[in-house]
Design a protein around this nucleic acid. Sequence first.
DNA 1: TCGAAGATTCTA
DNA 2: AGAATCTTCGAA
Length: 159
Amino acid sequence: MTGKIVEVEAYRGSDDPASHAFRGRTPRNAPMFGEAGHAYIYFTYGNHYCLNVTTQESGIPGAVLIRAIEPLDGLSAMKRLRPNVPELTLTNGPGKLTKALAIDKTLNEIDLTKAGPLFITVADEEHFKIARSTRVGITAGTERLWRFYISGNRYVSRK
DNA sequence: TCGAAGATTCTA
DNA sequence: AGAATCTTCGAA
């Protein structure tokens, strides 16, 4: 299964009240304090996993939440993991895409820069316009424009 | 130990 | 608009 990342949000540490790392290190958010390029996966609302990529050097919390992807390959497998769902809504949300890609906590903290069960690579050069907005689903730090998505892409989670 | 909140999703 | 659902965290 393969997909193109089309929507992300940035989270930081003590200067970002919306971040899990705002109040310091805990067992859950420990990956955010690790080396950049690793997975930070958490479980929320009793049902959903969310996938982040750590961004800062070791010791400094930071992560990017993957909010939506555009399916490229393995569409049938994704549909099997999320039955009876229209194609456009298969992966257009942080909880949806982890379900469609069978991502759970067993992949927490793995290195996403190297080939493995889950990893990220740079695709062929492509030109698109990146739009930004406030982050979704948070109650603090709502003024920051730290949500980034590909303008006009049909798989972003919201208009 | 307990209670409240949550980087969501689905249904009515 | 509201429920579902359970883990995590911080306070007691």
